[in-house]
Simulated scan of single mutants.
Amino acid sequence: MAAGGVNGFLPAVAMVAVQAGFAGLNVVSKLALESGMSPYVLIAYRQIIATIALAPVAFFFERKSPVKISAGILLQILVCSTFGATLNQLLYFIGLKYTTPTIACALTNILPAFTFIMAVPFRIETADMRSRSGQAKVVGTALCVGGSMLMTFYKGALIRLPPSRIHWRYAEEAAVKGGTAASGTGGEAVGAMLVVGSCVAWAVWFILQARVSKSFSVPYTSSALLCAMAAVECLLVGAVVERDMARWALGLDIRLVSVLYIGLVGSGLSVSLMTWAIGKRGPLYVSMFSPLLLVIVAVLGWAILDEKLYVGSGLGSVVIVVGLYLVLWGKGSESRLKTLITGAQDEAEDVELGEGEEKKKVTTEGA
């Protein structure tokens, strides 16, 4: 019982670790982008480092797996890499360049809404408007989308917070040297819309990965192949956009720290844990943990980066979180109902089996 309880909590522990890793990713990536690093170069290095890190792990733990790699599996992983790594990360990091880490992370809270919308046609999720759980999921989805639009198009007044005593002065120096931060609401709106686009691509990956996990249940190998294919895609895109080799240079500075961190933690570790958790609990479960990222990044953004918070961002964040937890409540209610129904069916089958055995015994004794 105790072992089962621990195993039941493992997916949740893994997803909390993923969100903590993503929080650090947002901070170091923002610093690298503000120092002048190209987002195309950043994600190309990210996938290369992730592939190098995952390949030996996959070989060591899964080389004796009976699951075979077929042409169909490779094609499915290629599609997953296009949406889950290349498109998702291109849109996210270009968007992050023009907005703040807190806004970018808050907008990722619409991920469960997009995942739910896409999961319904594939019958991975249901939207029964006759039940309270179905109504909660639909209303929560609408609130998530509405909150993201509020954050994207409404800025509002500055929320005045006391200055942090641990503000990282390197952040100011990087921003001044790079000079790449967005200026004005227009740039921030474009950045926010790009982040929303990355959430759509990420939601597509969740749905596709849920199907791949059923036929190819080796998470490390799947993740290594995904990152390798994404590395090729990102290198091709980067080579077209960034033709100056000087833009690809890395020194002993925040750029090197950033690519190492996001490659090892942001892709290598996180993709493996998410792939494993999707196979265990499904795509919507994994996307449920995104609000934790907002809290961590908001604190880090204020404390380390001296990030400013505006009324539109605050209101939008609240609306998104309320909508998200409506979706979670609806999902939880459906899961409990399904468990009760399954338990009742199992009990009925046991009763029928017992009655059949009793009748057989009586017939045998009578004979």
Rank of each mutant, 00 (worst) to 15 (best):
R255H: 10
G266R: 00
L252N: 15
L315N: 00
V286K: 11
L337R: 12
G282L: 02
V322D: 01
R243W: 02
L328Q: 10
V322R: 02
V240Y: 14
R255F: 09
K331V: 00
V318T: 02
V351G: 06
T339W: 12
R243H: 09
G330E: 01
W276C: 12
Y310W: 04
W276E: 04
V286Q: 08
G343E: 13
R336E: 05
E242K: 02
L264G: 08
L328I: 07
W329N: 12
A249C: 13
G251A: 11
I278M: 02
E242T: 06
L250S: 08
V259D: 09
P283M: 10
A239M: 06
S267G: 06
M245T: 15
L326E: 02
V271R: 09
S313F: 00
K331T: 03
G251I: 01
I304E: 12
V319C: 01
L293G: 15
T275A: 11
T342I: 08
G282S: 03
T275W: 04
V271M: 11
L264R: 06
L269H: 05
L256W: 13
R255S: 10
D346K: 14
Y285S: 04
L309H: 11
V286D: 03
W329E: 05
S287M: 08
V318N: 01
S258V: 05
E349W: 10
I341H: 14
G268W: 00
L284G: 06
D306W: 01
Y325S: 05
T339P: 15
G251P: 07
L273D: 04
A348W: 05
L250H: 05
S313Y: 02
V321S: 03
V311P: 00
P291Y: 05
W276S: 12
I320Y: 03
L260C: 04
K338D: 15
P283A: 03
S270K: 08
L260A: 00
K331G: 04
L292W: 01
G263Q: 08
T342H: 14
L269Y: 06
V321H: 03
V318R: 01
L256A: 05
R281P: 10
I262A: 04
K308M: 09
V311G: 02
L293I: 09
L305K: 15
D350K: 10
S317H: 01
G343I: 04
K308G: 09
L305C: 13
L273A: 14
T342C: 08
L256S: 06
V297Y: 05
T339A: 14
A303S: 15
Y285R: 07
V319Y: 02
A348V: 04
R243Q: 13
K338C: 05
L315K: 00
S267F: 01
S272H: 12
L250P: 07
L337I: 06
K308V: 13
G343S: 14
A344Y: 07
G323D: 04
S258N: 09
I262L: 13
A298I: 09
M288V: 08
E242S: 11
I254Q: 04
E334T: 10
S267Q: 03
G279S: 07
L326M: 14
A277P: 08
I296V: 15
G343Y: 12
G263A: 11
L309Q: 12
S258L: 05
L324V: 07
I320P: 02
I304D: 02
I254N: 12
